[in-house]
Nucleic acid binder design. Structure first.
Lengths: 201, 201
DNA sequence: TGTACATCAGTGAACGCGCGTTCACTGATGTAC
DNA sequence: TGTACATCAGTGAACGCGCGTTCACTGATGTAC
């Protein structure tokens, strides 16, 4: 029985739980914890405990507390970017809308991770229309660009991008913060985030 | 000098700082703190300290920690509702858009209070289309209702309301969480939240 | 008018909590000669 | 092949922190007779 063999291995050599580095194990455990607790309840000590390692061991792999959640956020952004681009494959207004719907669904499926990703970023100096990290905004902008009428200015692009992003981000946050009945809102995602409603006029 | 007289009064009788009840003084101090620190950094002890009272005195006026921030959120919702309805006075699509713009400006002007108001609410059981507390959603729904084409269903109303709310809430959150350059985004509020873009098709 | 009493807002010491972080350390692993 | 040494991941005790909350208390205020 393969699964038995696996668990025996793990019991026999506890270190094998974090094969390939405690760093990876800690990140995996962080993601796992985010499935069941609030983003701000993440603590180094809890993660270390669950991984089966002393509280201070993580300092070999992360310079301080903040760098672990921010690494998790990076992973989250990569996953989100992948889901957005997969959903938007068909291109055009329909693909763009589908990718907006995927954005909201991602948030509903991984609420704490999503919240962590978008927790207040330290004020950076962006050039005016530059993007925040994570490249989710890059995807949005790429999606928008193909849909703008000829002769639109960069301001037009930016406004259309921000409008679309606001729509999906707001819907996600309202659901996550329980300002809105989750079931009812989720059932309406496709309707609210439709090719019509993100019309880049 | 009036201002001197004031401060002399306060010095002479320290209790006068919380005239009319420690409760009001604590709430006022809470609002004041929210202007300069994060919503989740609010603590009973800090407020008591700033009001000049022992840490435990607040328990005479608030049953526990949570009830203070949630009272602050209530105040915030009342202010928001007032600003929304003032902005929307002229009625129609223009008034509705103006009130959406006011929503975003409220958030930008009082970021921590806004965040506190919309921090995750305990899951309640709403009837399907019922509203969260605070009546901001009531105003939104009222605004929407006058603009729907005849023959629209309650589902139509709800979808239009949620779309408009998502747009302004998302724009507000993206700015507050620094996902977007604040200056650039604020300069575009009117453009992003326009009578066109919240067209209740 | 004076005395006895209840009420109740605020005090200050104390509690346990989990946290991030430091420190000197152990002990296994690999490498140089 | 064997010995000396450096490296470095993980340990565990300890630190100080601010927090929410409890507890028995004080002392002013008002009220009943």
């Amino acid at each position: 029985m393969v699964s038995n063999a696996n668990s025996v291995n793990i019991n026999a050599d506890e270190r094998s739980y974090h094969h390939g580095g405690l760093r990876e194990a800690a990140l995996a455990e962080g993601l796992r914890l985010l499935e069941s607790c609030d983003a701000d309840a993440l603590s180094l000590r809890q993660i270390a405990r669950n991984v089966g390692v002393s509280a201070t061991a993580l300092y070999r792999h992360f310079p301080d507390k903040n760098s672990l959640p921010s690494a998790l956020a990076g992973i989250g952004f990569a996953q989100l970017a992948e889901e957005l681009s997969r959903a938007g494959l068909r291109g055009g207004a329909e693909g763009f809308a589908a990718s907006g719907q995927a954005y909201v669904r991602f948030a509903v499926a991984r609420p704490s991770l999503f919240r962590l990703m978008f927790a207040k970023m330290p004020a950076e100096s962006h050039p005016e229309f530059d993007n925040p990290p994570g490249s989710a905004a890059h995807l949005l902008q790429r999606g928008i660009r193909g849909m703008m009428p000829p002769g639109s200015t960069p301001h037009d692009h930016y406004a259309a991008m921000l409008r679309a992003w606001s729509l999906v981000h707001g819907l996600a946050m309202l659901i996550l913060d329980r300002q809105v009945d989750e079931q009812a809102a989720v059932a309406m995602i496709d309707r609210i985030v439709s090719a019509d409603s993100i019309n880049v006029g």
